[in-house]
Design a protein around this nucleic acid. Structure first.
Lengths: 208, 208
DNA sequence: GGGCATCTTGCGGATAACCACAATGGTCCG
DNA sequence: CGGACCATTGTGGTTATCCGCAAGATGCCC
């Protein structure tokens, strides 16, 4: 069901790939290695779990380029960059974009393994959070247009009467839609609804 | 009233301080320079506006040390670090802690000035946001203990009747407290209250 | 003691929300 | 065409919320 969480290593140097895989295995972290950014990208699916360990400089697509591409794809895997060149601008850029860490080679084995383990743990948290947000979004998507219109106004604190006037429908109709919204969103009051959406980081005026 | 927004330059090299001040002045950015982290810290007040430009390596307290100290003090000024040593770990650490940028010397004048201007603008946004949060917190602080207890339960979506049972008081009393909460928080419904607190990034179960 | 803030409660009524039962009309699809 | 889904509306009744009016009890400070 749930795909295995792996440390995905992307490096064009086979010696490094093997060393990393061995290091992580010795710490109980399952990993899989890829010889190029392109290879990883081909295998990438949004359901992937775990973390990424990317070399900065590679033949073909670089680590940062791969990272950017993945961000566009909505990938949220915690990413650790490895660099041998002390490149400050690249490090700053990567971290600003949300990379998990940026480590210079030669790296300390234990330190890197610790960071990878931290990243795996973070990914676990992200997953459960993402899952609940996905649930909320699927519920939102099950709402009809009319229900959405009513929900917006309910969240704006308007009375059914006012909503009815705005939408040019009877108050009774608003009540029906309102009840449907609560039912579909699995809440029992407008307050709960507001908090549910807030917990998912959603403003009351934006859909999914 | 509102203190002037300044680019606060902290560097122990007078030549750099002067050059930065001149550069920023030429771009219309008012600045003030400090010869050491200690000097700045003595002058620091939570009401300061603008941004920080910190040298990494200084006599006495270093830029990152000052930054850490300021974070402890709750300072939210956007901070730009200047370094001449290509120190990746320090850059990564600074950005992770929320530094605005980390720039290597020798820097491009225009680029740095642009970043400072960006930082000043960000600070402006932070300020207006902080102001509205402060307003909300002061309103929260004006609530009495009982009112807070009632508010928590209202935000939990509970009926007045249930709240009354939980607090062992009459429903009418709950109504009074409830009305008082709405009045003090300047909202007209529980939904608005939930959204007000959510907008301030507050969970319904935590005070200020 | 008097003033002030807080917590408390009751009564009664206006307004809003919630709901079951019942029904009409439209669209889209197999 | 029958069924599924959606939007719509009405009636009538229950429950909750919101409020003005009124008032009793504490506790604290000058």
């Amino acid at each position: 069901m749930m795909p295995e969480a792996l440390a995905h290593i992307v490096d064009d140097d086979e010696a490094i790939r093997d060393a990393l895989a061995w290091l992580l295995r010795s710490r109980g972290v399952p990993s899989r290695a890829w010889a190029s950014a392109e290879d990883f990208l081909r295998a990438y699916s949004p359901g992937m779990q775990g973390c990424l360990v990317l070399d900065i400089r590679m033949q073909g697509m670089s680590g940062p380029e791969l990272f950017d591409r993945l961000l566009e794809l909505g990938c949220a895997l915690p990413t650790i960059f490895l660099t041998g060149h002390g490149d400050v601008p690249q490090a700053v850029s990567a971290i600003k974009k949300g990379a998990f860490d940026f480590i210079e080679k030669p790296f300390n084995d234990n330190e890197l393994a610790d960071r990878v383990i931290d990243a795996m743990r973070i990914n676990g948290k992200h997953c459960s959070q993402a899952a609940s947000i996905a649930t909320i979004e699927s519920r939102l998507n099950s709402l009809t247009q009319r229900e959405r219109e009513v929900m917006e106004r309910v969240l704006a604190g308007k009375f059914n009467k006012v909503i009815a006037d705005e939408l040019n429908i009877a108050m009774r109709t608003v009540e029906v839609h309102r009840a449907r919204v609560f039912e579909k969103m699995a809440v029992r009051s407008a307050v709960e609804l507001a908090q549910l959406l807030a917990s998912a980081g959603m403003k009351p005026d934006q859909g999914s």
